[in-house]
């Protein structure tokens, strides 16, 4: 068991080195001309007020531009609550009967 834990830690550290070498080649953090800030975010920043009428852009994206996403996200939460209630209530009924 001890050898297994040691092996896991060694493999994890090797993986960490690999990921760090990859991460170091990302564009520098916090610069305004990174490739992340492309035309998509420019459109959201410039047009959000005209097209949705709200000042908070994150809410505009979550509830207007990507409203389908939020709809299925609420369904995910609903399914989680359903699964929890089913998992716990079925066992109770079995113990009673």
């Amino acid at each position: 068991m001890r050898i297994r834990k040691l092996l896991i830690i060694i493999v994890a550290l090797l993986a960490a080195y690999g990921i760090l070498v990859a991460v170091a080649e990302l564009p520098p953090y916090g610069m305004a001309d990174n490739p992340v800030h492309n035309h998509v975010s420019e459109r959201y920043i410039n047009k959000a007020l005209d097209e949705t009428g709200v000042t908070n852009m994150v809410t505009a994206i979550v509830l207007d531009y990507r409203a389908y996403d939020t709809m299925f996200e609420t369904i995910v939460l609903f399914t989680a609550a359903l699964a929890v209630v089913i998992t716990l209530k079925v066992s109770k009924r079995k113990e009673k009967g």
């Binding site: 992340v36 800030h37 975010s41 920043i45 994150v58 994206i61 979550v62 996200e73 995910v76 939460l77």
Partner: peptide, 16 residues
Amino acid sequence: YINPLPSALMLTGIVV
């Protein structure tokens, strides 16, 4: 302004 798209995506991630 910073990019609002990653924060909207991660809002979904927190709830999941």
